[in-house]
Amino acid sequence: MAEPSLELLKGTLDVLILKTLSGGPMHGYAVSRWLREATEEAFQVEEGALYPALRRLEKRELVESEWSVTDTGREAKFYRLTSAGEAELRSGLRNWQRYVQAMGRVLGATVGG
């Protein structure tokens, strides 16, 4: 790896999971693989950390789960966004953009000018 891995900001894993599931139901491993590939392995996260996060989202009724069979005939637990989850994702995105803009304004500005 050319650059060192980034620490995932607290709370952002939830948004990432919701974003991942917004494409349709997925099992845990698929979520993990998609995250890994989409971020080009920028984040240093143990793969197992995904599962407590999924269940916390389920407890908040942002996702729901169901055992089903994969294309390859394997049994896996699939997660799907609820409508509350979709709303949460939208507000998560909005917050993130405001956060990035604010950080960008500060960090891009010239100090002392």
């Binding site: 099992h27 845990g28 993990s32 389920e58 789960s65 089903s68 394997r74 699939f78």
Partner: peptide, 27 residues
């Protein structure tokens, strides 16, 4: 009425163990 959800057909610990096992196998 569904088989999964938060009241799966098997116990919670079995549910968790299966999910982890599936992940490791696919990986």
């Amino acid at each position: 009425g569904r088989s999964g959800g938060i009241f799966p057909r098997f116990s919670v610990s079995e549910d968790v163990a299966r999910e982890i096992r599936a992940h490791i196998e696919m990986r």
